[in-house]
Design a protein around this nucleic acid. Structure first.
Length: 514
RNA sequence: GCUCCGAUAGUGUAGUCCGGCCAAUCAUAUUGCCCUCUCGAGGCAAUGACCGGGGUUCAAAUCCCCGUCGGAGCACCA
């Protein structure tokens, strides 16, 4: 045994290759698996190309929860060298009415996360295709027009009893369906149902609606003349097949969809794709409910300043704060794909982001609501703290010293105590002043002298920093105002993105995380 | 009411398919120590979980049954 263990990895591998090639394969497959957060896709090896779709409803910009779909699909695409498209499932012009700006906003959100779809489709461009397949289905006897009011059908269905329309001959059905397409019915008058199994033990699967009439025109000009719209289960089922989708990834709210769509697939003799379902994601740290319509309401009520307000749980807001899309993707793929509901801690996004940006992000001072303290005792004329403590080669900031500094009130020493102003030197607090002592950094190492950040009273830059919990104001060291669109770490305060100047002439910063 | 899912530390996750190497992995979080001119980074350590009850078995996080709890669907929403 010890002989075996003394051999090198390569030698052991070769020996095992000879003795038990199958076991070696298994061991190495498991090793590969360890490199990924996400589990392997089901039966991935059976497909020449893994093809997936991200099928959002374009009714607003994305919130953080939406990032899960592209994060996972995009990561799988990279892993399997596969393909994915964005398909806007915008087939409800009324209750989930598409927002024309959202199509592009969603593609931008996707780009922010670091993914570019291989193709983009809009279901509202493809109505004629859906009609074609519906006609075929009708000819096969797989669908029927039904003018029963919803409630009446529901009662029959729950009792396992068929609609009286169920046995219409296909020609009549086809005529009525053509009339639906021609817009000869009004909303609610008639629907096209897929004939499934009216006695199926799961009532959710019995004779579901494939097409219904909608009087409200679609907001897209290209689709505004259509009145007969497919339901998600029909549209999505047809499209998934036509696009050659091999793996469908979606939420548990669509758990029964696969079973419903399977009836259509059986009529057409198609193979249903592999399906992965996951639960809902909740994110801690936000007061605002993560829902597109709730956020939209808060914005129009003026409670939020826009989709990128730092208090809004949106991707636009995280981008504004300087959080990299990559950090969100890592946190999302770390959740895996379990079907139970999960809580994502913002701290895990922060941890990923900190790791990404810490090394590149220079340090600055920012004092929140500072107290002004005079300096005495001939301190140096300028302070020279390093831009980054781990990278001396980047050089130092030069901060001119005036006759007083601002300190955060929490950092105010008690009388007689010494503190070390970072990058400047040691001071003793006496008679409400800071008296320069000229002592070396050893006094900090010996203990008992706290190290604090500070800014000079004159020349410092007024700052408004927006955070998840509201705004924080204060003063930043000189020069910070030239860092527009850059990340900084305000030492002992946190990472922030410098944005620009606000309407009051203050520098606007967005807090990312500690 | 009918039908489907699911349950491992504060959070997420590995392990469950094919029972033993699991007094249970990793990350995050929290706390303490070391290092440091940051409450950042880095290092070390601690904290903390198999929903409950039965059964099968030499052996159960893993298989079976019954509960409990949670989620989802039963829309002319997606």
């Amino acid at each position: 045994m010890s002989q075996v263990n003394n051999r090198s990895y390569e030698e052991k591998r070769e020996t095992l290759q000879d003795l038990a090639p199958e076991e070696l394969e298994e061991i190495e497959a498991e090793d590969d698996e360890d490199e990924y957060d996400l589990p392997a896709l089901p039966n991935a090896e059976e497909y020449d190309e893994i093809r997936m779709r991200c099928a959002p409803n374009p009714n607003g910009p994305w919130h953080v929860g939406h990032a899960r779909m592209p994060a996972v699909i995009g990561t799988y695409r990279d892993r399997y060298d596969g393909w994915f498209c964005v398909r806007f499932d915008d087939t409800d012009p009324e209750t989930k009415r598409p927002d024309l700006d959202a199509y592009d906003a969603i593609l931008e959100d996707l780009a922010y996360l670091g993914f570019e779809p291989d193709d983009v489709y809009r279901a509202s461009d493809r109505l004629e295709t859906y009609y074609e397949y519906a006609r075929e289905l009708i000819e096969m006897g797989g669908a029927y027009t039904c003018d029963l009011p919803g409630e009446e059908f529901s009662e029959l269905k729950n009792a396992g009893k068929p609609s009286p329309n169920r046995d219409k001959d296909p020609e009549t059905v086809l005529d009525e369906f053509e009339a639906m397409i021609a817009g000869e019915y009004e909303s609610g008058e008639i629907v096209l149902r897929v004939k499934t199994d009216i006695e199926h033990k799961n009532p959710a699967l019995r004779d579901w609606v494939a097409f219904r009439m909608i009087d409200t025109p679609h907001p897209r000009a290209e689709a505004s003349e259509y009145r007969c719209w497919p339901m998600l289960d029909f549209q999505s089922g047809i499209d998934d097949h036509l696009l050659g989708i091999t793996h469908i990834i979606r939420g548990i709210d669509l758990q029964d969809s696969a079973k419903r769509q399977q009836f259509v697939y059986e009529y057409f003799d198609w193979e249903y794709p592999e399906v992965v379902h996951w639960g809902h994601v909740q994110i801690d740290a936000y007061d605002v409910k993560m829902s597109t319509s709730t956020i939209a309401d808060l914005i129009s009520a003026g409670d939020l300043e826009g989709w990128d307000d730092p208090r809004a749980p949106t991707l636009a807001s995280l981008r504004q704060r300087g959080i990299r899309g990559e950090a969100i993707v890592s946190a999302m793929t770390g959740l895996g794909t379990s079907t139970s509901d999960v809580d994502l801690a913002m701290s895990s996004i922060y941890a990923e982001n900190r790791e990404l940006i810490d090394d590149d992000t220079d340090r600055r001072f920012f004092v929140r609501e500072g107290d002004q303290i005079p300096l005495t005792g001939n301190p140096p004329e300028k302070a020279t703290p390093p831009l980054h403590p781990d990278h001396e080669d980047r050089g130092v900031r030069e901060i001119p010293i005036s006759d007083s500094v601002l300190l955060e009130s929490e950092d105010l020493p008690t009388s007689g105590e010494r503190i070390w102003l970072k990058g400047l030197g040691c001071f003793q607090y006496t008679d409400d002043r800071l008296q320069y002592t000229g002592e070396e950094i050893d006094v900090v190492r010996e203990g008992g002298v706290d190290v604090v950040h500070w800014v000079p009273t004159s020349e410092s830059v007024p700052v408004r920093m927006r955070t998840l919990d509201g705004d924080v104001t204060g003063q930043a060291e000189p020069g910070v105002d030239s860092l527009e669109n850059e990340m900084v770490q305000f030492e002992r305060v946190g990472f922030a993105r410098i944005d620009g100047t606000d309407e009051d002439g203050r520098l606007l910063a967005y807090n990312a995380h500690p």
